[in-house]
Simulated scan of single mutants.
Amino acid sequence: MTLIPRSIPLINDPQVVHALAARWRRTRTLLLLSAGVLPVAIGIVCVVLAGMTSAGQRIMPWWSAIPAVAAAACAWALLSWLRRNGLSDPHSWLPATTLMTGAQLVLGVLPGSGIALRLSPGAAIAVKALCAAGVLGAGSASALARMAHRSLLATPVLELGSTAFPLVVAGDGSRVVIGIDRIDWTTRGGSRVDAGVSFVRIRRVTAQANAIVLHTASGSWTVPVADPASVLALLRRRIEWWEERRDVAAEREERRYRDLVGLLAAVSGEAKRGGVRVSVDSNGVTTGITLDPAVRDLDPDVLAAHLMACVHKARSDARRQVEDLVLDHAAAKASH
């Protein structure tokens, strides 16, 4: 399984993929080094330090392995986060990498070096060299994470509007964040103002001198920006991308709903007792009653009891099938 895909996630437009291919290759390489190779290398350093504590010792103290385990756990947590949801937020690459590699230093490299120096004083030079390598690796990982973010988003291009990456445009006293379904901005002209508008509320967007104007059903918002033309183009591109994804999601949900309705229509609960067979539909309405010849000898009250018992059991069977179908539908919807 590839840790970081070779193409930008959540993009189906070949033109966008081609336009951002070179930028993504640089970013992917830097991100693999910062969040993959270097944290794993720091974990290996901690494992080596733990191994050095056994030099001259008949039995390696169990607690000397704790720093190595902690460092390995931090590396695994960083890789898991990156694989699951970290790729969609480049602005979190630096904080997450700094946090995890810093934790590797505090929980792994530094205590591991102290334990190794105490239990293996003859290997002081090697221990110090490994400690320095761990510190250098953590610093380099943070620097590379910053470079990965800057390589991808430092110079916004129009094609980035068709991606899921949050786009940040900073100007004189303002900061605009174009998300996947809304735009937020902060201004500091005299007093700080934080505001935001979801794309579903925006009717149209226009530009004016040093600002863009968001027209909604409840009024207009003026957002100050340094380059209105480029921000306007990015925002329009992102809104188009969002609308396309919304339409696709709506079509997919409508198709899944029709499939669910078809499956519910085909639900049939059945029950049999004492020569009586009853079937009901998904609404619990009786659709068929079959009586074996043996029921002719049954007392009417007994036959009625068999009928009622079969109806209740068939309805319970149909209800269980309906619940299973609805739960499966909800689980499939949540997974998307």
Rank of each mutant, 00 (worst) to 15 (best):
R192A: 04
S191W: 06
W185L: 13
A148V: 11
A126N: 08
A124I: 05
I178N: 00
L167S: 03
H149K: 13
D184N: 07
V168K: 03
G196K: 04
C131G: 04
A141G: 10
G171C: 12
L130C: 07
V135L: 15
R201G: 12
P166V: 07
S120M: 09
A145T: 05
G171Y: 05
G171K: 06
R182N: 10
G122F: 07
R192S: 02
G134R: 14
D184Y: 02
I180F: 01
R203M: 09
T206F: 09
R182Q: 08
T163S: 14
A138F: 15
G161N: 11
A143Q: 11
D184K: 05
A145N: 15
D181A: 09
G122R: 14
R192T: 10
L158E: 05
R182W: 10
A124F: 14
S162E: 07
A143Y: 05
G139K: 13
V197S: 12
T155L: 10
L153R: 00
W185D: 06
A133H: 08
P156I: 00
G137K: 13
S174E: 07
V205Y: 02
V157F: 08
C131R: 03
I183G: 01
T186Q: 11
S174Y: 01
S140V: 07
A141V: 14
M147N: 08
V168F: 02
L144F: 06
V193A: 01
T186E: 12
A148L: 15
D184C: 02
V197R: 11
D181K: 05
L153N: 00
G171T: 11
F165S: 09
A148C: 10
I202K: 13
R203K: 14
A143G: 13
D184L: 15
A123R: 08
L130I: 03
G134E: 06
A132D: 05
L136D: 03
D194W: 03
L136P: 00
D181W: 03
R146S: 14
L136K: 04
A164N: 09
R150H: 04
V193N: 04
W185H: 04
G134Y: 01
A195M: 13
G139E: 09
G122K: 13
L158G: 01
R175Q: 06
S162V: 00
L136A: 09
Q208C: 15
D184M: 11
A195Y: 03
V177R: 12
A170H: 04
